Amino acid sequence: MTAVRHNWTKEEIAEIYHKPLLDLIYEAATIHRENKDYAEVQISSLISIKTGGCPEDCAYCPQAARYNTGVDVHAIMPKHEVIAVAQKAKDGGASRLCMGAAWREVRDNKDFDKVIDMVKAVNELDMEVCCTLGMLTESQAQRLADAGLYAYNHNLDTSEEDYKRIITTRSYDDRLQTLEHVRKAKITVCSGGIIGLGETVEDRISMLKTLSNLPQHPESVPVNALVPVKGTPLADQPRIPVWDMVRMIATARIIMPKSVVRLSAGRTEMSTVEQALCFMAGASSIFAGDKLLTTPNPSFDEDMAMFELLGLKPRKAFKNGRPGESKEIKEMSINEVIG
């Protein structure tokens, strides 16, 4: 089995990233297949529980209040609507629901109380619950953990060197500190980035280095292709070649062999063949459903047809145990029962 390392250098990662493409895919696929469940794909559904009006200036985001993107501002969704969306997603094959709010950071107010209630309610549907709410304090992360939150998404977006070109309203260290708070609360970490922002290949490698050298690799690493939105500063960015996505996914798979690598935003622009290459290169998760927050996404029916064609199967919820339950403890308990 491939050893898990936390001391990757930029030079080592660059050497992997720049390998001849077929060799790179083969190496990543081989590592992926060391896990007997390589054909399993985690299906997550992403909903916006509070849309628009964000005070940040993320250059790619249609929900920033300062950009005129046609996204209307909506107050936080009622809990019953969230439960209805979650049930529909579960019926469609999703095992995880991710709830996103267009906030810079979480505030200790009635809206956060509502999110806590939503986390508890979705848990009762036997789905993994993920949130992406912006920056968190230690105490807020612990509240989410106590409510049963399974995962917290907080992407690095790009490299530390490139970060200020994309976002000026928070720092890279702010991002890393939130990940520390999530880890301390024993919530699983979902953190990756976006390619196609106008970054260099060196920026991509630097971001992968930061992720792979964290004390514990993120359990989930989303690789997003920019979906340019009219009205944002990055509206005119060209679509990235699929080969860039394949290289990012394969490199992430090789240097973070135990993580779930998610083929995230940008799938609507990809053919089934292109997506198949990404799965071959080590992707083991997708977002499913008609929309990702405010941008289009393939439908559940399209994805299920692709799964059938490629011989993929949805991963069940809580495969690695529930919050606060390590896989080792879970396996030990099963063995004790068998014994």
Rank of each mutant, 00 (worst) to 15 (best):
V4E: 13
R5W: 11
N7P: 08
N7R: 01
K10D: 12
K10C: 15
I13R: 03
I13K: 03
I13S: 09
E15Y: 14
D23P: 12
I25S: 08
T30C: 02
T30D: 10
E34D: 14
K36F: 08
Q42C: 15
S45K: 04
G52C: 03
G53T: 05
D57R: 02
P62H: 01
R66A: 12
R66W: 05
R66Y: 05
H74Y: 15
A75T: 13
I76C: 10
I76Y: 07
E81Q: 04
V85T: 02
K88A: 12
A101F: 03
V106T: 01
N109G: 11
M118N: 05
L125K: 04
L125W: 08
D126R: 03
V129F: 03
T132R: 00
M135A: 00
L136I: 00
E138I: 00
S139P: 08
A141T: 01
D146S: 12
L149S: 01
L149N: 01
Y152S: 00
N153R: 00
H154R: 00
R175N: 01
L179N: 04
T188E: 14
G192W: 01
G193R: 00
L197Q: 11
G198H: 10
E202W: 07
M207R: 09
K209E: 15
K209H: 13
E219R: 04
S220E: 05
N224L: 06
L226A: 10
L226K: 07
V227E: 15
P228S: 05
G231E: 07
G231T: 03
L234E: 15
D236L: 10
D236A: 12
P241A: 08
D244R: 07
D244W: 10
V246F: 11
R247P: 15
M248H: 08
M248L: 14
I249W: 03
A252M: 14
I254P: 09
I254H: 03
I255P: 06
P257C: 03
S259R: 07
S264L: 06
A265K: 13
S271P: 10
V273A: 09
E274Q: 12
E274D: 13
E274F: 06
A283E: 11
S284D: 09
S285A: 09
I286N: 13
F287G: 09
D290N: 09
D290F: 02
L292Q: 10
T294R: 01
T295H: 04
D301A: 09
D303R: 03
F307Q: 12
L310S: 09
K313G: 05
R315A: 15
R315M: 13
A317D: 08
F318L: 06
N320L: 09
N320K: 10
G321N: 07
R322Y: 15
R322Q: 14
S326R: 06
G339R: 12
G339C: 09
